[in-house]
Simulated assay, not measured.
Amino acid sequence: MKKFWTIIDSFILKKFLSTFFFAIMILAVIACVIDYSQKVDYFVENKAPAGPIAFYFLNFVPHIVALLFPLFIFIATIFFTSKMAYRTEIIATLAAGVSFRRFLRPYIAGSIILGIIALVANHWIVPIANKNINHFHELYIWPKKVASDNNVHLRLSPNLYVYIENYNYNENTGRRFTAETVDGIQLKEKIMADRASYDTLKKEWKLSSVVIRRNDGLKETLELKPELIRKFPFTPKDLDDDGRARETMTTPELIRFTERERQRGRESVNFYLIEQHKRTAQPFAGFILTMIGACIASRKVRGGSGLHLALGIVISALYMLFFQFTQTFSTNAGLSPLIAVWIPNAIFGIVAIVLFRRQVN
């Protein structure tokens, strides 16, 4: 009876994981050095303490690792497999009666282990790290937000819509505020105010120079008020559509936030859906690229590891380029975010199947 797991499997899996983590460690150190050199002037200018700086780079590591996970799992596979092929270790293994399908077993195991780690990290660990990174940037790097976007429209409920021309966070004042209550296609009430300010303690809006228009069937009334206090289910922070926020939320938070933004009629909902689906698609990309890398690098060719690495970098760059292209196509041309995120995996999955069949035939 053949063993499910042998010494050679353990050897390959150990090589796979050690090469990947070594490559990631080197990448993290280089990325931290580059990022520090770019931000050191801000650290000095804003007098950032050593403790928060160290905590920032502690969170920066999972951020950069998650960003380039598919690239480095592919390069790690190419690198150590090519070394084995150059030393004829793979030829000896296959000559001993091990099929290529059986030879790939430790690669599958390694990619599944790394995929599970990436899956957990993408949905929970990396968003928390990104939140800490953004908090540090807000304190010591980014200039403080002075005003919201212009001409903001929000759908707070199926019957309530608000509009504000802009909001100044320093003065806590917004200009040209409008709240409309509708029933079907009929406008029931429209509140217009020259200025609006938010009370953070009472969580209510104070409107100034107010005009209230009410419509009750054939009867229409107009009321003028110097001041009006109302509670609306939004805050000044909701007026700013910050795209960086989607990377700082865990997946359950992101799902709830996306649904709320969809109800409010935000045009940027696709970006949040792409982020949500990407967190799952990326670990699967690691598995697919591992299979491609193993099939390519297992053949001994002239040029050795250098040729394999060059080919691996080209293929991984094409994958990331295609991934960005489909995301752009989704946000600008209306392609479903789910389809846009998984199209690169589907295409490169077909490539992996073709390469695998060429090896076993």
Results as ranks from 00 to 15, higher is better:
Ile7Glu: 03
Asp9Phe: 10
Phe11Arg: 04
Phe11Cys: 00
Leu13His: 07
Phe21Ser: 03
Phe21Asp: 02
Ile30Tyr: 14
Ala31Met: 15
Ala31His: 08
Cys32Asn: 07
Cys32Val: 13
Val33Trp: 09
Ile34Asn: 06
Tyr36Lys: 09
Lys39Glu: 08
Glu45His: 08
Lys47Asn: 13
Ala48Phe: 15
Ala48Trp: 15
Ile53Ser: 14
Phe55Tyr: 15
Tyr56Ile: 08
Phe57Val: 02
Leu58Tyr: 12
Asn59His: 13
Asn59Thr: 05
Phe60His: 13
Ile64Ala: 02
Val65Gln: 07
Ala66Glu: 08
Leu67Lys: 11
Pro70Val: 00
Pro70Ile: 00
Pro70Phe: 00
Phe72Thr: 07
Ala76Pro: 04
Ile78Arg: 08
Thr81Met: 14
Ala85Pro: 02
Glu89Arg: 11
Glu89Asp: 15
Leu94Thr: 08
Ser99Met: 05
Arg101His: 11
Arg102Phe: 05
Pro106Asp: 00
Ile108Arg: 02
Ala109Glu: 10
Ile113Val: 11
His123Cys: 02
Trp124Leu: 10
Ile128Asn: 14
Asn132Arg: 11
Asn132Thr: 02
Ile133Lys: 09
His135Val: 10
Pro143Gly: 01
Pro143Met: 01
Lys144Gly: 13
Val146Thr: 09
Asn151Gln: 09
Val152Pro: 04
Val152Met: 05
His153Gly: 06
Pro158Gln: 01
Asn159Cys: 00
Tyr163Arg: 03
Ile164Gly: 01
Asn166Trp: 14
Tyr169Trp: 08
Tyr169Phe: 15
Asn170Asp: 12
Thr173Lys: 15
Thr173His: 09
Gly174Thr: 00
Thr178Gly: 05
Thr178Gln: 13
Thr178Ser: 15
Ala179Phe: 12
Glu180Lys: 13
Gln186Met: 12
Leu187His: 02
Ile191Met: 13
Ser197Thr: 15
Tyr198Asn: 07
Leu201Ile: 10
Lys202Pro: 05
Trp205Pro: 10
Trp205Gly: 04
Ser208Ala: 09
Ile212Thr: 12
Asn215Val: 10
Leu228Ser: 01
Leu239Met: 07
Glu247Ala: 06
Thr250Arg: 12
Arg256Asn: 15
Thr258His: 03
Glu259Asn: 10
Arg260Cys: 00
Glu267His: 14
Val269Asp: 06
Phe271Gly: 06
Glu275Lys: 04
Glu275Thr: 05
Gln276Leu: 14
Thr280Pro: 03
Thr280Gly: 11
Ala281Asn: 11
Ile288Trp: 07
Leu289Phe: 06
Leu289Ala: 04
Thr290Arg: 12
Thr290Glu: 14
Cys295Asn: 14
Ile296Glu: 05
Ser298Tyr: 15
Arg302Gln: 09
Arg302Gly: 09
Arg302Phe: 03
Gly304Val: 11
Ser305Thr: 14
Ser305Trp: 13
Ser305Cys: 05
Ala310Leu: 10
Ser316His: 04
Gln324Lys: 13
Thr326Val: 01
Thr328Glu: 15
Ala333Phe: 11
Ala333Val: 01
Leu335Gly: 11
Ser336Val: 02
Pro337Ser: 01
Leu338Ala: 12
Ala340Ile: 03
Trp342Lys: 09
Trp342Ala: 07
Ile343His: 05
Ala346Asn: 01
Ile347His: 10
Val354Leu: 02
Val354Pro: 00
Phe356Thr: 07
Gln359Thr: 11
Val360Tyr: 02
